[in-house]
Design a protein around this nucleic acid. Structure first.
Lengths: 198, 198
DNA sequence: CAAAAACATTGAACTAGTTCAATAAATAAA
DNA sequence: TTTATTTATTGAACTAGTTCAATGTTTTTG
């Protein structure tokens, strides 16, 4: 397990807790690498989410379809991000979210049985995910408040600054869907910003 | 510790994990009841958050001020809700959020030292807060997607249905600030909905 | 209880963002 | 390499939501 994907996972965990070599060795054996082709869905809304995933390559979008059939992107996940439908995975109920690869990608997956096992066998993993979910809440709180208080072009500029590596993998339509605006309007924002800079 | 506030805390915890009588007895001793007068702030943006709180009576709003000085409500908390600035409390850094009582209220508080102690002494508490933060994420993801996909009057109706006990404690201005719209527009939405129903 | 302060309502003028349709450009597929 | 498909851009007409100002109502405070 000394290859790149597992090294990335090890590094990601090390950002939150201290894990001995042996502990990580055992823990990481619960994850299996999966290659996902561009455009493939690894989760479809309504299905039961069978995995929690750690992205090691490529890019995914996590989205939902509303009653009118419109897509809304919740977030994008590149290397070093986690993907799952928490509610569906934890409670094994139909998912609210879909997850699709935007390019050829790779992800380390853990299934429900092994996930539950990991909490029993490694008390530190409980802390790890408590800390990670806390950080996620903080990020989402701020994003929600930005949605309340900022205009579309402020949110667009913020995204470009904050996530340049993600931004350059996306089409305008995908980004517009994340920002919560129409792709036509995003096009107009881009035009305005370009003309301002020159 | 057999009085109402602690009973509420016990019940709240029981919704997530199983705690023996003795364990709860010891754990709950880390919390202290505080009465908060209407309009008082128990946390001000920029200060370091000294507590995590469990509301046992009354109502709080958790909000932030943007650069223009406008207030934006992140959420309201009545009996059975938790309040803190997670980032500020966990990392003891200046807070992004303010927390204010909207009426005379009561809250059970735990400080940082005791909170850290609780994770060491009670492994189950780690699980408790991992589960609670996961549920919070699910709720916030859905709220964010509603903000992307629904109009103001859909979000208003949703809130009234979902949180009637909270709604009837709020002024229009407070609710408008949570919905992310002007209070004048909320007033117009209410007018429209009333006329539709009759 | 009176005065002050905060709140709700309404209309008019405005602006941010949508929708639709047309055209050009880029990507993917055969 | 040609064709089909998706994507980006732009303009025009529209709509959801804002801002400002005026008026009346409720709540708070001295």
């Amino acid at each position: 397990m000394n290859n790149l994907p597992y090294q990335l996972l090890k590094q990601n965990i090390a950002n939150h807790i201290e894990f001995s070599e042996t502990e990580f060795e055992k823990y990481s054996r619960l994850f299996h690498l999966k290659k996902v082709a561009k455009k493939d869905y690894i989760l479809r809304q309504g299905a039961i989410c069978k995995f929690e995933g750690f992205v090691t390559k490529g890019c995914f979008r996590v989205l939902t379809h509303d009653r009118d059939g419109n897509e809304h992107v919740l977030y994008f996940a590149i290397q070093d991000w986690w993907i799952t439908d928490i509610d569906s995975f934890t409670n094994q109920i139909p998912s609210f979210l879909s997850i699709q690869a935007l390019e050829d990608s790779e992800v380390l997956l853990i299934n429900k049985v092994d996930k539950d096992l990991s909490y029993e066998q490694f008390p530190k993993v409980e802390k790890l995910f408590r800390i990670m979910t806390q950080k996620t809440i903080v990020a989402m709180q701020r994003r929600l408040l930005r949605k309340q208080s900022q205009t579309a072009d402020e949110r667009y500029s913020y995204f470009l600054n904050q996530y340049p590596e993600i931004a350059n993998k996306l089409t305008n339509r995908q980004l517009a869907s994340y920002l919560g605006i129409s792709h036509e309007f995003l096009s107009k924002i881009r035009k305005k910003l370009v003309s301002k800079k020159q």
